[in-house]
Amino acid sequence: MSMINYASREINCKIVYYGPGLGGKTTNLEHVYGKVSPSTRGKLISLATETERTLFFDFLPVDLGTIRGFKTRFHLYTVPGQVYYNASRKLILKGVDGIVFVADSQMERMEANQESMQNLYDNMAEYGYDLTKMPFVIQYNKRDLPNAAPVRDLQAQLNPGWEVSDGARQRIAPDPFHAGENLVEQIPSGEWVERATYFEAVAVSGDGVFDTLKAVSKLVLKSLA
């Protein structure tokens, strides 16, 4: 639920990092925290267990610049990835403006990724939000690991695309981040589908972290424009 404050000239938006446990959601926020100038970010708040597993959420506010004289302030949240924390996970989605799904690329985590993606769709639907019409970006994390699944397999499993029924939108939309790929296209069965933008990342070293954040923030601001 973005909030525009004309008195303090601020636009506040909420972005949630979602995904399976130990996938790197908190690591994404820690990297942003470490790299952004302290003058443009707030404290990183972590409600975690003593073993540093996220219990409720992590939170980091960052300012990404000024548009039309309004400061754009993004509140970044992570959810606890572990399956049994669904009640807390759902609470964090309240009022969300944009979603980053952090998938764990390791082959043996494919099922956990799928389960978490399904859980995301379910929780969003319970709030009455339609994920396919919202700013939504997928990050394939841990690309440096030897057991990382090929991106095309991850795409097939986690980002197969949703049907585009609006005739006006049934035209090829190239993916600006991956040459030769499309975000909206017609599949061989004749159906038009749209996929979420995706990024490859190694969050521990910071690769792809800012690309992901920039992409989702831009989508959020454009959704308000």
């Binding site: 639920m1 973005s2 909030m3 525009i4 404050n5 004309y6 008195a7 909420k14 309240k94 009022g95 969300v96 403006d97 709030y127 009455g128 939000y129 339609d130 019409k133 919202m134 959704s223 308000l224």
Partner: peptide
């Protein structure tokens, strides 16, 4: 069905009140 969370804004008058 709303697409997502609705955005809201308030003016300087609201803020003053």
């Amino acid at each position: 069905m709303p697409v997502g969370a609705t955005s809201w804004s308030f003016t300087e008058d609201d803020f003053g009140a």
